[in-house]
């Protein structure tokens, strides 16, 4: 699934990384706890989070996440946006809550970290 398709499914706006919409995303994970993202995330992950401070971008960079989707209409501060631009991490923001945003992506075929897909 491309970042463009994710943007359309989640009715999201692009906060940063307008030129990265062709990026291919193969799995995703959602958490507001960066401790858990560091413990359970994997390189290449699309991170969904409601944590909008710079630590979300630093954590994404540390684990080689491909992009971040902020849920609940959150947007990162300027420090986070600047770091994301430097590191080439696209940032999106959706008004959907975490559960709905993850559910929409999962039911449209984007698996989680474990690779589990929805039952047909």
């Amino acid at each position: 699934m491309t970042l463009k398709e994710i943007k359309e499914l989640l009715l999201a706006e692009i906060v940063s990384g307008e030129d990265c919409l062709d990026l291919e995303i193969t799995f995703a994970g959602g958490s507001d706890l960066m401790s858990d993202v560091l413990a359970f995330g994997k390189p290449g992950i699309l991170l969904l989070t409601g944590l909008s401070n710079a630590q979300s971008v630093r954590t994404a960079n540390i684990i080689d996440a491909k992009a971040i989707v902020y849920v609940r209409g959150k947007k990162p501060d300027n420090t986070g946006i600047k770091l994301a631009r430097e590191k080439g991490i696209p940032l999106l923001s959706t008004k959907y809550m975490m559960y709905t945003a993850c559910g929409l992506l999962f039911s449209n075929g984007l698996p989680g970290v474990s690779g589990l897909l929805p039952r047909k």
Binding site: L33, S35, D36, L38, A39, N53
Partner: peptide, 16 residues
Amino acid sequence: REMGFGAGMGLPNIKK
């Protein structure tokens, strides 16, 4: 916790 940390995963995750 507001920074997204303090879940008690830090030291075990360093060891891992």
